[in-house]
């Protein structure tokens, strides 16, 4: 016969056990188990001592006086409607259209413009590969950070999309695996470890039970607790900003070299 587990004793204390009779017999028969149960009772009675201050007799009237002027404030849905109205104002709409047109033009030009440098088929030097890895991992961390921030700040009543979030996590997961291996191969152990930790969290998000299309409060709470207590978000932010600084420094060095080359006299290289 197994020893009574804490969980069984807690349910028994609250009258929610399905084995009440059996537990009662066991407690009567075993002094050790009785002592454990008494200790649980003492703990929960100790919590019971926590007093709640009795509100003042006119508390209700005070609440109403404070509340009444706020009833006309727009709620979250009203704020979204106001924002949309402002966005869709004719002048604003024209500006949004112009920006969209510019983006479309830039995209089209990018597809037809020939590549500025680099011979086709020529392998990139090691430094170049490292730089590309840094930029790609930096962008990946930025996208992951956005997902984690959204999850960490999701309100309980926000009806978090239980389909969209796991799908985003799944997409991030596949690139995370590639970057983690690449980081490990190139000897960047600290980066690989952060990516490994991120991978575990992304895996959990990707496998969240969609249920009725929304995450349950408990799933969300457990996830938010993991994000906050493990410090994953903080680590991703720190590593992400380090990579960004590193990339900026490399870009600056490259620009300086390029400028030096451009400003050097044609014969300074010794070649004709």
């Amino acid at each position: 016969m197994h020893e009574l587990r804490d969980e069984e004793l807690i349910l028994y204390f609250y009258g929610e056990s399905r084995h009440t009779e059996e537990i009662r017999r066991r407690l009567d028969a075993s002094a050790d188990e009785r002592e454990r149960y008494d200790e649980l009772c003492r703990l929960l009675q100790l919590v019971e001592t926590q007093p709640v201050p009795e509100p003042h007799a006119d508390y209700g009237a005070r609440v109403w006086r404070r509340l009444k002027p706020r009833l006309d404030e727009p709620g979250p849905a009203g704020r979204v409607r106001e924002w949309l109205r402002a966005l869709l104002a004719p002048r604003r709409l024209a500006a949004v259209g112009a920006v969209a047109m510019l983006l479309a033009l830039a995209f089209t030009a990018g597809r037809f413009w020939p590549a500025a440098s680099g011979e086709p088929g020529q392998p990139l030097p090691e430094a170049g590969r490292q730089r590309i890895l840094l930029v790609a991992v930096g962008e990946h961390l930025e996208r992951s950070e956005m997902l984690l921030v959204e999850l960490a700040n999701a309100p309980r009543e926000g009806a978090l999309d239980a389909v969209g979030e796991p799908r985003r996590a799944e997409e991030l997961l596949s690139s995370n695996r590639l970057y983690r291996r690449a980081a490990r191969r190139s000897g960047q152990g600290a980066l690989a470890e952060v990516l490994e930790e991120l991978e575990r969290l992304l895996l959990d998000v990707a496998h969240l039970d969609a249920g009725g299309g929304e995450l349950s409060a408990v799933d969300l709470d457990a996830l938010q607790e993991r994000i906050e207590s493990g410090g994953v978000l903080f680590k991703v932010q720190v590593v992400g900003s380090r990579l960004q600084r590193q990339t900026q420094r490399q870009n600056q060095r490259q620009n300086q070299r390029q400028n030096q080359l451009n400003s050097a006299p044609p014969d300074s290289s010794g070649e004709v």
Partner: peptide
Amino acid sequence: LGARSSATKHAVFRAVRKL
């Protein structure tokens, strides 16, 4: 809380353990 019974039970268990 919009949670399954098992998850709710475990939230209570965790709370008692921490207390």
